[in-house]
Nucleic acid binder design. Structure first.
Lengths: 225, 225
DNA sequence: ACAATATTGATAGTAAAACTATTAAAAAAG
DNA sequence: CTTTTTTAATAGTTTTACTATCAATATTGT
């Protein structure tokens, strides 16, 4: 039985709603796998089409190009983390505990029972860690922002910033800390794996607990009164 | 008169040393301008060749491809910031003052008298802000790291981490804080300009002083004993 | 159940990007 | 001032990024 998660994303991101058809879901599912396998640069619609045994043109009927498909997946992730935060902080009143849970969700981004079968959240998380920021480091950032393509990220940051302000209403940078904790979580998992001299934490396999601990200490020190 | 800065970069980054010839210098100079004008994705060797009135093939004699040229420029920036830190913290003993100067260099990355005429450091800084992280968010990260292509970043981070440890020897994350201050400087200038709801600071034109202040406060709180 | 409509699969084609190769002309070095 | 290196000009190949067409298949509305 599904827990009833529904991920609604800006309809400007796609031409045809991929969640509405079998082929669309296959595009989502397999693009996540393919981005992880070969990386953003080498990813092409032709390769994806071959993988899911359809024509290149069929994919173009769903997404204008690789960038929009990627942004769709990244937006999905932002929504997913938002959902996790809501789900896991439900009925918790202590803002410090809430923030700890948020940090845990930034770092692990996982949930025991999977939500939507055609999205492998764990692989999606890996993509975000290695290249998630490419979704918004683009020349057309202002036009796309105008279209509301980054609302999911902003809403998630606003949600976290609110908790931060609850922890310490005097803290002047709640949004900056929120986005920084999110970015740091991804960055330092990446650094630990690939450029270890840029960090002090170690990760072994999927064990990111040192990253989590570091973020907790950072947050605690920054929000101390 | 030049101050005598010499920027030495890993020779694996290029096929022929661009600093050694007129055309090479023109490639450096104009690629900085072109990356800034049209962005990483739209940048091609053909367009660059047209801009500097040479053939595409001539550029391929200097750099294997766009990625290596870009990495060359980003490495230049890392070296440049390292130089600025050395230059501006010379003879200063108080580590807290040193760290303030480092933060100032992360945010402004500028120097009154220009160093090398064919590199516009101010435009290079803009490129780093908008897309610098693309240099190391790549599929071949481990192979390229093996080749030493990120040593300039690592050395810069090590240098800053040392100052951080001087400020507070008990602080457990000197490298992570060093890389984070650098990344935050770029990120929050970008956010303030393009995705303002992801930060709390404002930038007006080239005035990044709010970013600087935020980083100072972050560093101070994190390093308080 | 069946006609109307929408979606797909298969094929083909164009324009630009990402290179490689060749050779004559120009520049630099000994 | 001749040998060697470097560049300019041209041409060609493969791959990417995308558009168009249309018959086959699925979906939907009654």
């Amino acid at each position: 039985m599904s827990v009833g998660i529904s991920i609604k994303l800006n309809s400007g991101l796609y031409i045809r709603d991929p969640q509405a058809t079998k082929l669309g879901k296959s595009i989502i599912k397999n693009s996540i796998l393919l981005f992880e396998e070969i990386g953003f640069e080498a990813f092409t619609f032709k390769k994806l089409a071959t993988k899911i045994k359809t024509g290149e043109a069929s994919i173009y009927r769903y997404f204008e190009n690789k960038h929009y498909l990627f942004l769709y997946l990244v937006s999905w992730y932002w929504e997913w983390v938002s959902f996790l935060i809501d789900y896991n902080t439900k009925n918790i009143v202590d803002p410090k505990r809430k923030l700890k849970i948020i940090i845990n969700n930034f770092v692990f981004a996982s949930k025991d029972n999977p939500s939507i079968d055609y999205v492998n959240e764990s692989i999606l998380h890996k993509i975000i860690i290695s290249e998630g920021t490419k979704a918004y480091h683009i020349k057309d950032i202002d036009e796309e922002n105008q279209e509301g393509f980054f609302l999911n990220y902003k809403q998630m940051v606003a949600k976290v910033a609110e908790v931060i302000s609850e922890v310490n209403p005097q803290f002047e940078y709640p949004r900056a800390l929120a986005s920084n904790l999110f970015e740091m979580a991804n960055n330092h998992i990446y650094f630990a794996k690939h450029l270890p001299r840029l960090t002090d934490v170690k990760v072994k396999g999927e064990d990111y607990s040192e990253v989590e601990k570091m973020l907790e200490i950072f947050a605690e020190k920054l929000l101390a009164k």
